[in-house]
Design a protein around this nucleic acid. Structure first.
Lengths: 314, 314
DNA sequence: TATTTGAATAATACAAATTTATGGAGACTC
DNA sequence: GAGTCTCCATAAATTTGTATTATTCAAATA
């Protein structure tokens, strides 16, 4: 590693002298005394073993070597300025990238709205949304590939200690039926009614599927007795299946808002059974938090958080 | 003029850490202690108001801002290296430009040989030859547009004090006649014979013309009585005119070497008359002397200098 | 839990740049 | 052409900043 034969300050001085044509004027411009300028240029000339200025006459003129050095000097200082600007932009959220992780459900139905709001406020920050499984999302947050994420499932044990997990919102998984299904007329179903239904379920790898199964099991139901008509790996596909009368399903309410309004799908209530899960915000406390990430967490997320979420208590 | 928020040393450290993934290893690489590295990075982070490294785990990892800064950092340091190389090349005569001035005569008949010799030794230094009048050449040397020059005439008085003038060589201005001219047979002419000749002269602006006229006058001749057949502004044209029998002329011997050998032109001797002028090397002592200029003066010029020239006494 | 490695901190010692004061060289003025 | 002015160079002293040694703290490894 060779030592650098000059400093940025020296280059700055060189440029100033070249522009002003005078050591003194350069000194005034840089708010230093004239000897400081002289000495720095002398150092520069000594270290590079060249003469940079002809001090003979009234003006300080560049030598050939001086002109050569000035060219590089300008390029270097320009790059420095650009670097400063880029950093400033990053600090003032006029640049940079925010990487957000999400599960299928939140990624599809919640995040777009949040990101839209964020982008409206900070149009210069580019946002990247990564929709993955809860496990993979967790690891990405752990190793810094994702700034923050919202998940609905359970994290692997080792990650639970590593990451900061903040309750964010409650996501109700509603039992939905085809609107012309016979049971759609009943005000309230009984748990046993579930055994009469045919289900269109998410594929068994899905976090949502696991959550639903666990909640049903915990409430005393025998999930083996629930009839499965088919398994799909897309919420949209399931919604279509339900609307087509192919079966019932447990779906996040946020995903069926439009269909409920249109009446193309029916949401049933079950006595003594609430299928709800906690959506959680996860971040990595041992990592640097970008300004964009901070702002997103403090200004955007609370607007969509449930009242009980710590994010709401500012 | 905003102060620079970082130094080249800090950028160098940043780069080293990014490359090594560790503060300690970077410190070893740069031959400093680890706290020095830590402090510089802390300064950098403070001044830019960003976090550059995640020091959490085993390795020091770049943050987004760090990556951004590193990009500029590499560019800047590369430019610095290039600047050093360029300066080194200039110092070792592997680059740069040498600008030489000359009068018509030396520029045409002498310089090409000298420049050829120089370029043979230093093929990476580009040489520029500027052929101008003595006056203009003098001013160009004075204001630095020309590194060094060889002139045959008299400089304006103000320049004589400003420039360093070194006798370089004696240039004989020979009386030349058409080879079939009647007087060509005489071993030696008398001054009075000149009145019988018709002259082809350089135009009256020419330095050489002025020198010749002055020398003839000083030797007692009445130059008004000398018959002028024509005035031309090119030595080559005059040579052709003489060879064609149009008249006689005083020409630098260096310019007629080939013609004398071929016998197409006759050089006459005149009793009690030597038309000689001093060629002088002029440089500007109050100006920076480039390495190329130094070398040209010390190594190339002496080989063509007359024995009496100070350039010969090394 | 103990040990090791890497980074932060504090105090001291060192190096470097800036300033004040001064001297000298060239340029403009009368 | 002498005086004055401007500009740059130099010297000594002060200030500033940077590096080092020694130590502490935290995390990872065994």
């Amino acid at each position: 590693m060779p030592e650098l034969p000059f400093t940025l300050d020296q280059l700055r001085i060189l440029k100033a002298i070249a522009a002003q044509g005078s050591f003194k004027k350069a000194a005034d411009l840089l708010y230093v005394t004239q000897p400081a300028v002289s000495l720095q240029i002398q150092n520069l000339e000594k270290q590079l073993e060249i003469t940079i200025f002809d001090r003979g006459g009234r003006k300080a003129l560049l030598t050939e070597a001086g002109r050569l050095l000035l060219e590089y000097c300008e390029r270097i200082l320009n790059q420095c300025d650009e670097a400063c600007k880029a950093i400033e932009d990053l600090n003032s959220l006029k640049g940079g990238t925010l990487v957000i992780g999400a599960s299928q459900t939140t990624g599809t139905y919640l995040m777009p709205r949040m990101i839209g709001l964020f982008r409206q406020k900070y149009p210069d920050v580019s946002v990247q949304l990564q929709v993955h499984s809860t496990r993979r999302t967790g690891w990405s947050v752990a190793n810094g590939q994702i700034d923050l994420a919202i998940i609905g499932g359970q994290l692997p044990g080792d990650l639970e200690n590593l990451l900061q997990i903040i309750p964010y919102a409650t996501d109700e998984l509603a039992l939905v039926l085809p609107s012309k299904h016979p049971l759609s007329n009943k005000k309230e179903l009984l748990k046993e009614d579930l055994y009469k239904l045919k289900f269109v379920k998410l594929d068994s790898q899905s976090t949502t599927r696991k959550v639903v199964d666990k909640l049903l099991q915990d409430s005393g139901l025998d999930i083996q007795r629930l009839k499965i008509e088919m398994e799909l790996n897309s919420l949209e596909a399931i919604k279509n299946a339900v609307q087509s009368g192919l079966g019932a399903s447990f779906l996040p309410v946020v995903s069926i808002e439009r269909e409920l309004e249109a009446g193309t799908i029916h949401k049933a209530f079950i006595a003594d059974l609430e299928v709800k899960r906690e959506l959680k915000l996860i971040t990595n406390p041992s990592r640097y938090t970008s300004r964009a990430s901070e702002v997103f967490k403090k200004n955007i997320l609370p607007q969509f958080a449930s009242l009980e979420s710590p994010l709401r208590q500012t």
